[in-house]
């Protein structure tokens, strides 16, 4: 199968859907040259550096029958747009009693590990999970990003896609043939029997590397990538934990009130899974600090393979 980059796969999803539906608009502070060339300046708009404005404008466009892709770029810039995102995009379908549809795709990058320092590194998806009304994606491979964005571009709700900054250039197999990945369906990225590892964003790749390494030592990890945080495929995680009896959740977002806490909470609240647990679940998360710039400190703040291995050994009782 052909291999393309994550960014290329995401672009293809948008191109295909923009070809199909002329009532689509792209807004971002930076020009996406391929889209501009194909779809022109009316539909592919470079906005002023006013994130709150174009996040809000997407809502007005949606309420007027247009679908918008708004690329906010970094999640830290997304904070500038939180009024429109949280007060309006998330609530507007509900607050107006479902009168209108709001088909919007918001994209932004998350994560650290590239010496961007605190104002350019963060993974705030759990904040968004806390404001009902948004659907939340966390695509981790070229295949997933294309399939999930394709689904998002047919969904009639505001969808936020959080894409790890360091994944954009990664390469993977993507079929030429059209496909869609449904929301709320986790992907078991590696089957295993000893420990369930639920990993988010870039940590999926770290967890897979750990699984490979530990397989050599006779330890079998099952690595689950939820792919969408809202809706969340709880059953796949619960089923796996019932099988392995051990759970490690890996997420580079801060630990406090994070998605990892929610994953452990719903798993341990499930009586059948709780009864099968052989050890207390463990979180491997980013530290509760702003991400520092200097490489040794930054590395210290974020999860890595070593920390994941330590957690796996911990739940195995070693």
């Amino acid at each position: 199968m052909r291999e393309i980059t994550y960014d290329q796969a995401a672009l293809e999803a948008i191109q295909e859907e923009f070809r199909r539906d002329p009532r689509t608009v792209h807004m971002a502070t930076d020009l996406p040259p391929e889209l501009r060339q194909e779809f022109g300046s009316d539909r592919i708009r470079v906005t002023p550096i006013a994130e709150n404005n174009f996040v809000g404008a997407s809502i007005g466009l949606a309420g007027s029958g247009f679908r918008t892709v708004a690329n906010i770029r970094m999640a830290t810039f997304g904070f500038v747009a939180l009024d429109q995102m949280m007060n309006h995009a998330a609530k507007i379908t509900y607050m107006f009693g479902g009168q209108a549809k709001f088909p919007i795709l918001y994209r932004m990058t998350v994560g650290g590990g590239f010496q961007g320092a605190a104002e350019h590194s963060i993974s705030p998806y759990s904040m968004y999970m806390n404001v009902p009304g948004l659907k939340i994606l966390l695509p981790t491979t070229p295949y997933d990003v294309k399939g999930l964005l394709k689904t998002a571009l047919r969904d009639n709700n505001p969808v936020v896609s959080f894409e790890h900054f360091l994944l954009g250039g990664t390469i993977g197999e993507v079929p030429e043939k059209e496909y869609f990945i449904p929301f709320g369906k986790a992907d078991i990225k590696r089957k295993g029997t000893d420990v369930t590892v639920v990993a988010l964003a870039k940590m999926v790749h770290e967890a897979l590397a750990v699984a490979e390494e530990l397989a050599g030592k006779g330890i079998s990890l099952e690595v689950i990538d939820p792919r969408t945080l809202i809706p969340f495929d709880k059953q796949t995680v619960i089923r796996s934990v019932k099988k392995t009896g051990r759970l490690v959740v890996v997420d580079e977002a801060c630990q406090t009130c994070g998605a990892a806490a929610e994953i452990i909470a719903f798993t341990t609240s499930d009586k059948s899974a709780f009864g099968k647990l052989k050890s207390a679940p463990v979180r491997v998360c980013g530290m509760d600090i702003p991400i520092p710039f200097s490489p040794p400190m930054e590395k210290f703040a974020l999860p890595d393979k070593k920390k994941i291995i330590r957690a796996v050994m911990n739940v195995l009782g070693d």
């Binding site: 404005n53 007005g60 309420g63 309006h88």
Partner: peptide, 24 residues
């Protein structure tokens, strides 16, 4: 009537979107 908004000022960005739609 695209709705009344209770956050002061918040209708303005939304209205820019409605006018982009009209322009398109």
């Amino acid at each position: 009537m695209l709705g009344a908004d209770g956050i002061v000022g918040a209708g303005l960005p939304i209205a820019t979107g409605a006018s982009i739609a009209a322009q398109l």
